[in-house]
Design a binder for these strands. Structure first.
Lengths: 155, 155
DNA sequence: CGACGTGTACTAGATACCTAATACAGTAAG
DNA sequence: CTTACTGTATTAGGTATCTAGTACACGTCG
């Protein structure tokens, strides 16, 4: 299109600074409408459920994890606070935060309730994009194994 | 620890005005982090995919659907606009809005992409609540049939 | 013609979330 | 004690969403 312009390429406005991009613990999806603090909360619960974080193990400090995920420390602090209130984490003031000795697994009631709620959301979107039940199930199986494999790789 | 207070029971503070509660078309979940206009957009797509809304059928007016769902007309208008831009709906100005004659179904690429994305979110929450793959799949099958049945009942 | 319903556009306010920066209290190591 | 790190609290600003109210252009019907 441009004729014989000999100007050196535009100096790259760098819309994306895109520095290290570590993803040590788990990933944060900025496009997900769910709040970041909820994604962090769920991520920690996921790692505990998968055994990547065992009872008594120490979790990264608020500032470290914030730097790792490239979010604000306040956001991580909010997730840690909720996990502490829920009995998932235990904080030794001035020392650090650890996985609770007896990591509470959600009661079967609320566990099924949360799962059912998520299933309805997933089924709804599956139907809205014209997917059948079999395709939806296949995709879940694939995604489940992928998430497990991804966490095992980092454990 | 009030002693022998004989005051009649509190007159039911009625924290939820809870008026008609119609739910003619589909339901809106205020606790869902997804924006309401996206829930509406997905709901219309869902009804078309299930045949509850056939090509050429008229959809409720912006104000009617807004009153039905108890949301602001602007929110419904935003959803209708996106559906019109996407070729799902067609608007006859001053007359009304109708389902497009050739309702576009998402390309297989973006359809699979959206489905895969939703599947990852669902699998993640399933793992985080300590659910196994089988339970997660069972819940999806149950939810899928429930959504279909619910829409058939209103069609 | 006028009245009504349609989609659309605009302003303004309220709320939730994320970010930034700073400060404080407690613990461990030098 | 001093230093460094921990979680926690506070204030401020920016962005996105939802709400409310109003106004306009278009088409149908009486």
């Amino acid at each position: 299109m441009g004729a014989s312009v000999s100007v050196s390429d535009s100096p790259l406005p760098l819309p994306t600074p895109d520095p290290p991009l570590p993803t040590h613990m788990f990933a944060i999806n900025p496009t997900d409408p769910a709040p970041i603090w909820r994604q962090i909360e769920e991520g920690v619960r996921r790692m505990i459920a998968l055994g990547a974080l065992q009872p008594g193990a120490s979790v990264p400090s608020v500032r470290d994890l914030a730097k790792d995920l490239r979010v604000n420390p306040n956001t991580v602090a909010r997730a840690y606070q909720r996990l502490t209130e829920g009995g998932v984490l235990a904080v030794k003031r001035g020392e650090g935060t650890y996985v609770a000795d007896v990591p509470v697994q959600p009661r079967k009631n609320e566990r099924n309730e949360a799962l059912r709620d998520a299933a309805i959301r997933y089924a709804s979107t599956a139907i809205s994009v014209g997917s059948g039940l079999e395709d939806a199930v296949d995709e879940v199986e694939s995604a489940y194994e992928r998430v497990v494999r991804e966490h095992r790789r980092k454990a």
